[in-house]
């Protein structure tokens, strides 16, 4: 199948970017990234600079493959990362626009690669559980209600890909931050530090320059792991309790 690509090219964050048109001969069995590989081999053969894009696991678990396909982070298919998106979701002769994530807090490094270390700093601020080292505790020593465990597990599915902030018209990182706060806070080991966690992670999120949550829910729609905005309500609650409820 013939694909007309409009790919964003940008040297670095200090230069202006632009779209470049290319035609790629792909097969419908290829993943979107494999199609991008074909484009890059073509460019290398033509002695041109290949398109920089991030990828690692190529099986939907690392969250590296950030790109915006026809205006949607990770493309049109619900609940999938770019690496899991197949060309059979497109038609022969389609024109596809590929852009980097756009959010102030994710500066462009090159072409489709953005710097997502803002998310790492949010995690560093409080997205952890302090444990004493020693003998490994028994896996099921602390009983946890089934529904609570499932909710924590659903939140833990977040791969930190950044699609939520990229999809949000406000560039807000609330879905990511809330998934982390809920994942840890719903479990007894993490609950202990919830107050300071909610406060510190939100403070860092604000400091990084992410926007405010208007409850638009574009994040939930585009999240490859289908993280629910229930977590955002959870974070709002945890933050309100931490800020005005507790000492």
């Amino acid at each position: 199948m013939k694909i007309n690509l409009k790919v964003w090219r940008q040297k670095n964050n200090n230069t202006k970017g632009h779209f470049e048109n290319h035609t790629v001969e792909a097969t419908e069995h290829m993943s979107f990234l494999e199609m991008m590989d074909v484009l890059n081999e073509q460019l290398i053969q033509e002695k041109k600079d290949p398109v920089a894009f991030e990828h690692d696991c190529r099986e939907g678990i690392c969250g590296a493959c950030s790109m915006v396909i026809n205006g949607r982070p990770h493309g049109p298919q619900q609940g999938t990362t770019t690496c899991q998106l197949h060309m059979r979701k497109f038609n022969d002769g389609d024109t596809i626009a590929v852009e980097p994530y756009r959010a102030k807090a994710f500066p462009v490094v090159k072409d489709l690669v953005v710097d997502r270390s803002a998310f790492d700093r949010i995690i560093q601020a409080g997205g952890y559980v302090s444990v004493n080292t020693g003998g490994a505790p028994d896996g099921n020593a602390i009983p946890i209600e089934k529904d609570t465990a499932l909710e924590a597990f659903d939140a833990a599915a977040c791969i930190g890909c950044g699609a939520c902030a990229a999809a949000c018209p406000n560039g807000s990182a609330m879905l990511f931050t809330s998934a982390k706060v809920a994942h840890l806070g719903k479990l007894p080991q993490g609950e202990v530090e919830e107050t300071s966690r909610a406060r510190k992670m939100v403070a860092q999120m604000d400091k990084e320059g992410f926007g405010f949550c208007s409850n638009i829910r574009a994040c939930e729609v585009e999240c490859p792991k289908e993280i629910s905005v229930n977590n955002i309500a959870y974070l709002n609650r945890a933050f309100l309790t931490a800020s005005i409820g507790k000492e």
Binding site: E99, G171, S172, G211, S214
Partner: peptide, 22 residues
């Protein structure tokens, strides 16, 4: 929020979000 978004996408996303919310 405008500043946090920076620039917009060249192609507007057609997804299931309400116009009013945006």
């Amino acid at each position: 929020n405008k500043a946090a978004k920076g620039s917009k996408y060249a192609v507007a996303a057609k997804n299931d979000t309400s116009w009013a919310s945006k």
